[in-house]
């Protein structure tokens, strides 16, 4: 009888312990564009999914998301709503959400907020900020493009020259300059984040002008990739997300934003009691930025070695890339 009671108590204790271990962490993410954009928003969303998978699925990490929040007050409402529903971590994945995070975070001191891309935690102990040094991968892509172009003409397409798109392209230009000063680079900016058709026309214009290597940033550059694919013999350098799937024959490499390590660290820190207060910068050095070579593209070994050396130099600081 006694032993039975003991086992019962032991069982209950084990159950409680299991429950304590299994209480999943609840994460909500708010993104400005669609989770299917093959760029900025998808980079975060797929990182969260992979973290969820690594941790053991739904039972360990509950993930909710709201995408297409290009309007800031709507996003602010979403941030506050998720925070008030008792989510452990609320990720505001857009630099335009800064003021909203600052305001809501003060009202929910027990919730961890992460936002980016920016470096400002507003001096709040429950806010993490994160950003990506897009110029570093841009430099590597530019280096590769300079080494691979035969026509010595390179084209850049983008929506508006601001934010990530600007820092990436500035890095790209520095990479080209570093490798070969004789190359001409022309830029086109379409003024729209969604006008895929115009982006495609822009890429065709670069090609018609003799460019044989192209790059670009934002969700609408998929139009450029499509145009390059149609022409054939054109090389593409991707950023933000692994873009090889769109044109396996012509993507040389993509700068990939890998948020998983950062996310895992935020989760671990929160479990250890630290709710925020620091800033993450994805760089080549810390592995947050990765250059993903397309295995389907036969990159000459010498150039790959040189590119890897460049990556190492940027990582150890001997090459300084200006944002």
């Amino acid at each position: 009888m006694k032993s039975r009671r003991l086992t019962a108590i032991a069982l209950i204790a084990v159950l409680f312990a299991a429950a304590a271990v299994a209480a999943p962490i609840r994460i909500a993410v708010i993104m400005p564009s669609a989770t299917t954009d093959l760029a900025f928003s998808q980079s975060m969303y797929s990182a969260l999914l992979s973290v969820q998978k690594d941790m053991g699925g739904e039972s360990a990490l509950v993930l909710k998301h709201t995408d297409n929040m290009f309007n800031v007050p709507d996003a602010a409402a979403a941030i506050r709503d998720y925070a008030s529903q008792g989510f452990d971590v609320v990720i505001a994945h857009g630099s335009q959400y800064g003021s909203s995070v600052q305001e809501v975070a003060k009202d929910f001191p027990k919730v961890t907020f992460a936002w980016g891309t920016d470096v400002n935690t507003f001096g709040l102990s429950n806010v993490y900020a994160y950003t990506a040094a897009a110029e570093q991968g841009g430099f590597v892509n530019g280096f590769l493009a300079a080494k691979l172009t035969k026509s010595k003409k390179v084209g850049v397409t983008g929506p508006v020259k601001v934010g990530d798109a600007k820092t990436y392209v500035d890095g790209f230009l520095q990479g080209i300059q570093y490798a070969d000063k004789s190359i001409t680079v022309s830029e086109t900016w379409t003024g729209s984040f969604s006008d895929v058709a115009l982006m495609s026309a822009a890429a065709k214009t670069h090609i018609a002008n003799g460019a044989d290597s192209l790059t670009g940033s934002s969700q609408s550059v998929v139009g450029s990739i499509g145009a390059a694919k149609d022409k054939g013999g054109i090389l593409w350098f991707g950023t933000q997300f692994e873009q090889t799937s769109l044109a396996p024959a012509l993507v040389v490499a993509s700068q990939v934003y890998d948020w998983t390590a950062m996310l895992k660290e935020i989760i671990a820190k929160r479990k250890a009691g630290s709710l925020g207060g620091s800033t993450y910068v994805l760089t080549l050095a810390n592995g947050g930025l990765k250059i993903a070579y397309n295995p389907g593209y036969a990159l000459p070994a010498a150039i790959k070695t040189a590119a890897d050396a460049t990556i190492k130099s940027i990582a150890n600081g001997s090459i300084k890339v200006q944002p």
Partner: peptide, 19 residues
């Protein structure tokens, strides 16, 4: 937003955000 009215702080910090 990419010219006269761009946040000077964004320029200084190298984020160049369109705001």
């Amino acid at each position: 937003l990419q010219g006269v009215l761009m946040d000077p702080e964004g320029v200084a910090r190298g984020t160049f955000l369109a705001q």
